[in-house]
Write a protein that binds this DNA or RNA. Structure first.
Lengths: 238, 238
DNA sequence: TTCCATTTTTGGTATGACCAAGATGGGTTG
DNA sequence: CAACCCATCTTGGTCATACCAAAAATGGAA
């Protein structure tokens, strides 16, 4: 009851936001369909267009709507990727300094260490097969740096999939997106690719051996080496 | 050059957003100070108040401004907590179903496992002392469930601090915030507190023994038990 | 100096208008 | 008949203005 009083404290748009969000989640309106026109929402809720636009803007910034500039906002049911995309702007600021990148990269190391340990103890035949396939494509792509980058991501993606937690692949995509600028400026050489492939293979072998400690060690060496490469490229100290 | 054309495609507010964001990051305007009044921004940028408000809303949703309903927006330099708070709304939706909560909780287990393993191998004297102190307060709070909850969080917080990565404490606060609703509905009994305290102690002991595997096992048992408690409370299957 | 009442400032909302770019529909053309 | 093009309507983006209520500033009284 105190709650209503607090909320009464201005913010007419908030109620509309909640209502629309509820409707989106309830399936009415369906995912992928355009939102009703602002002018019709405005009379549906008995509010001014100002408020409608504020609500729409809020929802789109939350990732529940995809609002291209001149087009009708499109409903996008909230997924883990939507959550991640909400972070994008702030993360951009945090990545402005080297320490920020380092901190983010450290969390990636931490997570991937967990993933390979988990894989080394829990991976089933299908997981192993997926890793193997990714590894093969990775090897085949050594001469083509662009393609190698894709297969590199794909190999790591398999690791994120093994845990069967839909949050993790979203996190992986986030890392890939956020750290992309760093990577894209780095020189890409086939010999470097071969090195990375060997690292992937060692990780894979350790998982096959069901040795989490070894897998962790290999993964750490792999990512640490990648980080040192980044530092050399940007002339920063590790 | 194509970029300008794309951006010219509407979005007058975006430029203002970028400009204001830059000024915030540059220190002009200083952190914690209120933003200029809308009407003055409006003449500074030669735009209508509509656009000013849109920009302010955008910035506040990104966490660069803290905009209470009726007050002047306050500048808040982007930190890791700001990033997390940007997630809040979407996460709320994701937590609507049991599976979402489970997925989130699993990531917490994963992260904390990494943390205790790290602590077991790298914690220094100060870290141990901090853990010890948190543990003592935790024990003392067993009879008082509210206080126990605080000290419980504090104990886990120490774990998040040991890795010396500012991202992690922010993540911890996020978990605490997001999972709070689940916890707050659970019965809090001193005997349950005592159980949790014992679990904390076992984790601490394992860290003291420098045994990452044991620490991981204790942590897993602790969190798994907590999860089962949640499931019993809400009548869900694990 | 402290405190309260008044005035000013400022954020929240409503209206109405205009523009330009998408969406629509009907007529023309191959 | 289908593909194409232009006139038109629709709709999102922006602006200007006005009003209200709450916050902040101000000034006078105790």
């Amino acid at each position: 009851m105190a709650k209503e009083i607090e909320k009464n404290n201005s913010r007419a748009a908030d109620e509309v936001v909640r209502c629309l969000a509820a409707k989106i989640q309830a399936g009415d309106y369906p995912d992928g369909s355009p939102l009703p026109a602002e002018r019709s929402l405005m009379e549906e809720y008995n509010i001014s267009r100002t408020v409608v636009r504020e609500a729409v803007q809020a929802l789109s910034r939350q990732g529940l709507l995809q609002a291209r500039p001149r087009y009708r906002p499109v409903v996008r049911k909230p997924g883990y990727d939507a959550a991640i995309s909400a972070l994008e702007n702030v993360v951009t600021h945090l990545l402005n300094d080297h320490a920020g990148v380092r901190n983010l990269f450290d969390t990636r190391i931490m997570i991937e260490v967990s993933l390979v340990r988990h894989a080394a103890t829990h991976a089933d035949k299908n997981d192993i097969a997926a890793l193997n396939a990714a590894l093969a494509e990775n090897e085949a792509a050594i001469p083509d740096s662009d393609l190698f980058y894709q297969t590199d991501k794909a190999f790591h993606a398999v690791l994120y999939d093994i845990a069967r937690n839909p949050v993790l692949p979203a996190i992986h995509r986030a890392y890939a997106t956020w750290l992309e600028p760093q990577w894209s400026q780095m020189p890409r050489l086939p010999e470097r690719n071969a090195e990375n492939y060997q690292a992937h293979r060692r990780i894979y072998d350790a998982i096959l051996l069901r040795d989490p400690d070894l897998a962790e060690q290999c993964l750490r060496e792999h990512l640490t080496s990648a980080w040192e490469q980044v530092c050399r490229t940007f002339g920063e100290k590790p």
